[in-house]
Every structure is written in structure tokens, then in C-alpha cells.
Design a protein around this nucleic acid. Structure first.
Length: 566
RNA sequence: CGGGGCGUGGCGCAGCCUGGUAGCGCGUCUGCUUUGGGAGCAGAAUGUCGGAGGUUCGAAUCCUCUCGCCCCGACCA
């Protein structure tokens, strides 16, 4: 295609509204424009990326046994009332009434619609399993849209739903979708990990998030150096940490004055001990009720783990006043010995020897505190955040914390929706049973943004070839004196004949502008035809990612391009 | 929704405190020159200063209301 005919409004300067790099580059390189908060127009270049990604998704979903359909975006409130989500979903669900005063909403997701469709049309185990998906624009009235395509209100999503006759079938389907997702993101040329995600109340190992690795990601994930273990920080576990002072005989409990020493750092420095020797006592409010939580001094509480242990809907760290009121002790001097609160502790605490804790009175701490001898807790559980000092729970190798962008999420739903909406079929014995469901999402537009977060440099985007808007761009540097347009046309035809998407920069612009725009737009390979061809008979073929450059004769252009693309 | 900030030509900004008829860079248009990393010269166009009220002889500037957008927090693909 010709640059001069396409709408590619590149910008020399970064618009002030764009905070993250993918947003800045999508705007500057002429891929998107904002219509209103969290809502973007996809210009021709962006649409080409989306179409390429979607094609990969469609192929791999088909291989995974899923079939595509397209569900309505406008959905009746009654369906959402059946599932209970009309009440639960909150203001993120954009609701409205039509001229007949019928309540409706814009679909943020389609469990209700698909469950309704299947219950009306699938009645026998003979028809199962069914795995259905769509690629569609979703709307969620996010409180605060930001980061361009990373978190818009309107976004493109692939959402799939499976219906199986039993648990075993649902698990097999889940596995197939997991494999399909691995193939999809691998084919896109993205560095990613499938991580075990927190499954909340459902439990089990049937939720995975697919995270594109990027420093700018919103989520922290833990990955193993040695094996393929990877988990969301909310869920990550590790081998037990070495115990400081292991083997020491329990010493006599001793109270020491620590005036004004409140923080872990202050206390351990004052007493000349390692933070690993200190038991940190934090007060959390679990649905409003205070609970004391013990972790080693150098560890942090993982709130989601705590929340799951306590079965609470919400946990938050109590503020100083709430701590004083609940425990009767100022912050900084709390400890488990004689604590009047409910106490839970991290597993590591149980094995600590001759530890330091607050004395539950101002300006004093206790030395030589030993769990079991000096205090007991209601429950020991894994409550802490994994650190880079920890070891992989599977293989014992080192762990790395890294940032990721969630681009896919697969989830075993079980019968939650089929029960709420009475979606049943008849099994071989003629008994009515509820469908066992799964759901599988991919943030399609978000993945495009994530790809940029992961693949860019100071000059612009560096597209992975499989989702690049074009495979190759050819710069026509013709001037009045040196016309090479015929040569360019020939090269374009050759490249197109090899099945490559070609963007020809045929604009009447100076070379510098074309080079800058080509770098900004990020097409993987660039072919430059200028007066050098006329003087040397050669054209330049250059790879965007690493600047690898070949000077080749006309006959070698296609091979050079193909070579640099692999 | 709570907290912070911003709306001035297509983009990036100054002017506002201390009212006096709007300016800079880039971009756009015309002509000539130039043409391998965002050109030079000459000329030109483009603003209801987000909107509505008010104060004032006079409002981009002060006051009130309103709309939109951005950033931080709770939510999420």
C-alpha cells in the first residue's frame, strides 16, 4: 500500500495526555486517536495489527476445538438479574433504558448471553462439549480509564466459553485452551509467561493469567530461573527460608527498653540483630474486625493470602489510631506475647528461634521469644510476599520478580452460572445436570499495547513481525534528479509476490522525514532506494530491531528481506 | 467517588498573579532552492482563549456555575 494514500498522521511531539510509552507511540505513530475518555479510534495501521493478531487467535482457537460466533452487545437486564450480576456488577456495567423503558446494558462480558443461548439450544450430553468464542468490542465503564489501549473503557476482547458434561471434560477443555493460549502468544513473538492466578473462593489450579513481560506492567509476577514455575505475586509460594539461629537452645525471655524505636530498622539496629530475627506484628482489619498478623521482620504480608485465609471480603492495614484502640498498644511495640487480639502468623514465624518482638507496652521489646513456648497463634499459614531471596517451590532454583501485563486469563467456572441460570442437559441416564463451564479471555487491543511496551526503543515501535502492520516498508527517495520510482515499483511487486505486506513510502518528503517515520511506525524491515542505487546498483535492506543492514543488488532484495524477517 | 492538575490556532506551550484588543516553536498553504536521518529563504492562512453567567469603561486574565480531559488511590482484560 502507498503511504500517500493511507491515513497515518504521525506526530513529531508527544501529546501531553499520554503517560505510558505504548500510548505515546500509538498516538505519535498514527495508530490511534482518542474520541473521548477511554475510547479510541483505530486508524488503518492499528487495524492491520489487530487483524493480524485476530487471525492468529482464530487459527489457534480452531485448533483447540473452539468455534466462533458473535453475540449481541446490548443485553437485557433480566438476564443479568438471573445470574445475580445486575446487582453485583456495580457501576462498571453501563446501563440504560430504551424507549419502552426496558432496562438494558452494554456487554462488558458475555457469560449470561452465552449461557442463555446454550440452555435454549443444547439439551443432550450427546451435543457436548461445546466451546464457543467471539472477538468483539466490549464496554466497561471504568472508573478511571488510562494508559491508552491498556485500559480503555471500550476495548476489543476475545472471549470464549466452554460447556462440558462433567468435571473431567471441563478440565480437558481447560487444558486445550491453555495450550491454545500458549501457542497464540508464542506465535505473536511476545515474551510472556502463563502464571497461576488467584482463584479466590473457587480454589484449585484452574486459573491462569497470561502475562506479557514488560517493566511497565501493572502486575508483579514471580518466575523461576530454573523451571517454568511462574505465579502472580498474590499467589506465589516458595520453599521455606533458612532459619536464622537454627539449633540455638531457647534462651530466657528478656524485656529490653527500646525508647522511641518503632520500626523494624530502628529496633534491629538498636539491638544489633538481623531483621530476620524480628517478628513483625501488624494489625489488619478484616471486614472491620482487627486481627494481628505475624511475619518475619524482613518479610511483607500478602493481603490476598490473608484475605483468603480469613475468608474476609476485604482486609486493610489498620491505621495508628485503630491499632491503639484494638490492641491497647501504640504502633511499633506490638507483639504476640500476651496479645489480646486474634493472632495468625506466617509459616516462617513458627520456626523462628530466640526472636525479638514488641513487648505490648510502650518503649519496650522482648528478646528470646520462642513460638510455642511464649505464645501461640490461632493458625499458621503462608501469608507473606515471596521475595527474590526465596527459592522456587517446585525445583528450588532462584526466583525473580518481574512486571507483567495481563493479556489473557483462563478460568474454570464450574457450575456457578449454569446453576444460577438453570442451564441443564440430560445425561446418559436421562438425569438433568448443569453444564460445567469455563471462560477464556484475551485482551486483543490491550495485547497490541503490551507488545509495544515490550518492544520499543528511543526511535519508536519495534513490532514483532507476526503482528506488525506491514512486514516490510520500502522508502522511495526519488528526487527530481534521481528518479528511482520504477525501481521501487519493481521491488514492491517482487515482495508482494512473495506474500509480504508492503508499505511504500512514496510521499514527496525529504529522506529524514521518511526515515524518522519508518522508525516510529516500527515495521520490521526497511528497504531504502535512493541515489545510491543509481551510483552503485544496490539498495539498503535494514532490520528495525537491531539495525542489521545489508546492501544488495535488485535481484537479492526479496531474499535479504526474508532473511532479516526470520 | 476522594485527592491533585489542566483546558489559549492541528500538536507542544507562554501570557493569567498585577485586567487594556493574543504570542512562541512545530505543523499547514504558496513560490524558489534543497533532497540518505524530522531542510533554507520569502510570503500566507488559521483563535467564539472549553461553555454559560457575573464584576468592570474594558475580561484569556477577577468571581460563580458548568462541561471536558489528565494524574494519584480503590477496580480490572
Amino acid at each position: 500500500m502507498r503511504f500517500s494514500e493511507l491515513l497515518i498522521p504521525t506526530l513529531k511531539e508527544t501529546p501531553a495526555e499520554a503517560e505510558v510509552v505504548s500510548h505515546q507511540l500509538l498516538l505519535r505513530a498514527g495508530f490511534i486517536r482518542k474520541l473521548t475518555s477511554g475510547v479510541y479510534s483505530y486508524l488503518p495501521l492499528a487495524l492491520r495489527c489487530l487483524r493480524k493478531f485476530e487471525a492468529i487467535i482464530r487459527e489457534e482457537m480452531a485448533r483447540g476445538g473452539a468455534q466462533e460466533l458473535l453475540l449481541p452487545m446490548v443485553q437485557p437486564a433480566d438476564l443479568w438479574r438471573e445470574s445475580g450480576r445486575w446487582r453485583k456488577y456495580g457501576p462498571e456495567l453501563l446501563r440504560f433504558t430504551d424507549r419502552h423503558e426496558r432496562e438494558s446494558c452494554l456487554g462488558p462480558t458475555h457469560e449470561e448471553v452465552i449461557t442463555d443461548l446454550v440452555r435454549m439450544n443444547v439439551h443432550s450430553y450427546r451435543d457436548l462439549p461445546k466451546n464457543l468464542y467471539q472477538i468483539q468490542t466490549k464496554f466497561r465503564d471504568e472508573i478511571r480509564p488510562r494508559f491508552g489501549l491498556m485500559r480503555g473503557r471500550e476495548f476489543i476482547m476475545k472471549d470464549g466459553y466452554s460447556f462440558d458434561a462433567d468435571e473431567a471434560g471441563a478440565e480437558a477443555t481447560y487444558r486445550r485452551m491453555y495450550d491454545a493460549y500458549m501457542r497464540i502468544f508464542a506465535r505473536c513473538g511476545l515474551a510472556f509467561r502463563a502464571v497461576e492466578a488467584d482463584t479466590g473462593t473457587i480454589g484449585g489450579s484452574f486459573s491462569h493469567e497470561f502475562m506479557v513481560l514488560a517493566d511497565t506492567g501493572e502486575d508483579t509476577i514471580v518466575v523461576c530461573h530454573g523451571c517454568d514455575y511462574a505465579a502472580n505475586l498474590e499467589k506465589a509460594t516458595c520453599r521455606p527460608a533458612p532459619v536464622v539461629g537454627a539449633g540455638e537452645p531457647p534462651a530466657e525471655l528478656e524485656k529490653v527498653a527500646t525508647p522511641g524505636k518503632r520500626s523494624v530498622a530502628e529496633v534491629t539496629e538498636f539491638l544489633g540483630v538481623s531483621p530476620k530475627r524480628l517478628i513483625k506484628t501488624l494489625v489488619y482489619l478484616a471486614d472491620g474486625d482487627p486481627v494481628a498478623v505475624l511475619v518475619r521482620g524482613d518479610h511483607e504480608v500478602q493481603p490476598v493470602k490473608l484475605q483468603n485465609l480469613l475468608g474476609a471480603l476485604e482486609v486493610e492495614l489498620a491505621d495508628d489510631a485503630a491499632v491503639q484502640e484494638a490492641a491497647g498498644v501504640p504502633v511499633g511495640y506490638l507483639g504476640p506475647v500476651g496479645c489480646r487480639l486474634r493472632v495468625v502468623a506466617d509459616l516462617e514465624v513458627q520456626r523462628m528461634v530466640n526472636a525479638v518482638t514488641g513487648a505490648n507496652e510502650p518503649d519496650a521489646h522482648l528478646r528470646n521469644v520462642n513460638p510455642g513456648r511464649d505464645f501461640t497463634v490461632e493458625q499458621y499459614a503462608d501469608l507473606r510476599m515471596v521475595t527474590e531471596e526465596d527459592r522456587c517451590p517446585r525445583c528450588g532454583a532462584g526466583l525473580r520478580l518481574t512486571r507483567g501485563i495481563e493479556v489473557g486469563h483462563i478460568f474454570k467456572l464450574g457450575t456457578a452460572y449454569s446453576e444460577a441460570m438453570e442451564a441443564t442437559f440430560l445425561d446418559a441416564e436421562g438425569k438433568q445436570r448443569h453444564f460445567v463451564m469455563g471462560c477464556y479471555g484475551i485482551g486483543v487491543s490491550r495485547t497490541i499495547a503490551a507488545a509495544i511496551e515490550q518492544n520499543h526503543d528511543a526511535d519508536g515501535i519495534v513490532w514483532p513481525a507476526p503482528i506488525a502492520p506491514f512486514a516490510v516498508t520500502v522508502l522511495d527517495l526519488s528526487t527530481r534528479k534521481d528518479n528511482v520510482s520504477e525501481v521501487v515499483d519493481g521491488i514492491v511487486q517482487d515482495l508482494a509476490a512473495s506474500g509480504l505486506d508492503v508499505l511504500v513510502d512514496d510521499r514527496n518528503e525529504r529522506p529524514g522525514i521518511k526515515f524518522k517515520d519508518a522508525d516510529l511506525i516500527g515495521i520490521p524491515v526497511r528497504v531504502t532506494v535512493g541515489r545510491r542505487y543509481l551510483s552503485e546498483g544496490r539498495v539498503e535492506v535494514r532490520r528495525r530491531r537491531d539495525g542489521e543492514t545489508l546492501n544488495v543488488e535488485l535481484a537479492g532484495v526479496v531474499d535479504a528481506v526474508l532473511g532479516l524477517l526470520t
